[in-house]
Design a protein around this nucleic acid. Structure first.
Lengths: 140, 140
DNA sequence: GTAAGCTCCGGACACGGGTACGGAGTCAAG
DNA sequence: CTTGACTCCGTACCCGTGTCCGGAGCTTAC
């Protein structure tokens, strides 16, 4: 068995490579998203490749709109390669898509109202009461 | 001077009519969105029509996506019927529309990625590693 | 007059996702 | 051997928008 030595980092090295703050790593440890490596008798804790991958997984998932609680579930599903697992992950993705669709619908509805109001403003600006403020004041 | 008596409410009456909690009204008072009426020597504070309108204004604005800080500004612009004021309000509406557009764009981009991932899942579920988890694991 | 139900007030707590602080231990360079 | 940079740890704090709590005072109905 030749050198299976893996690269390891101190917490700040890991933070740098993962593109997060040291405090964020500690936070993930606190909330159980990341296991804290054992503290050696001598020196500082060392983090390995799996920690790095895990943080990157978290960050990518967050970028896709998953909350940390949801990411935690996804992390739990990693490793079990069963069709059932894949199905559950796929469902989560579908749910998230539906969530996004809802949000977009809401935003567009609000956008329409705002555009309507903005359109009601006279170009020259001679209108007595600002029609937008007026609408906020009186309309349901 | 005939009876100019206006309808007034206690805080819970106001809350009910405005469709918010008593605590919310107190919160608005705390953060300076709503003036607390003077406490009479005898009895409880009484809120009038302007308080009711103000809360409704706040709630409508919030529904359109304005934060309380932004609503505060809008409230400050109420009452001055100048063209300049109207222009500023109109700008705020435009900014909010742009904000919404940005958010929708972001959401749609994320949606695309998610849809892509969901589409990569085999229907039958025989895939070894779940392609979604795999992507979260390795892709940037 | 007394009990129920309201107000008044200050403060703590919730949420999600971190950030900041302070003191003690540890490590590496000069 | 000292200095500066880093870790480690617990704790408190930040954002926005409220919500809840507890005790004291007030009002209204019976």
């Amino acid at each position: 068995m030749a050198d299976l030595e893996q690269e390891t980092w101190t917490i700040s090295g890991l933070a740098q490579d993962a593109g997060v703050n040291v405090e964020t790593i500690r936070y993930y440890e606190r909330i159980g998203m990341l296991r804290q490596p054992r503290k050696p008798l001598q020196g500082w804790r060392r983090y390995d490749e799996t920690a790095l991958r895990r943080i990157r997984f978290i960050k990518r998932s967050q970028q896709l709109g998953f909350t940390l609680a949801e990411v935690k579930e996804l992390l739990g599903l990693r490793g079990s390669a069963s069709p059932a697992t894949c199905k559950r992950v796929s469902k989560k993705a579908g749910d998230k898509i539906a969530e996004i669709d809802d949000k977009v619908r809401d935003l567009m509805a609000v956008r329409d109202v705002l555009a309507d109001l903005a359109g009601s403003c006279p170009e020259d600006g001679t209108g007595r009461p600002c029609p937008i403020l007026d609408a906020l004041d009186t309309r349901s």
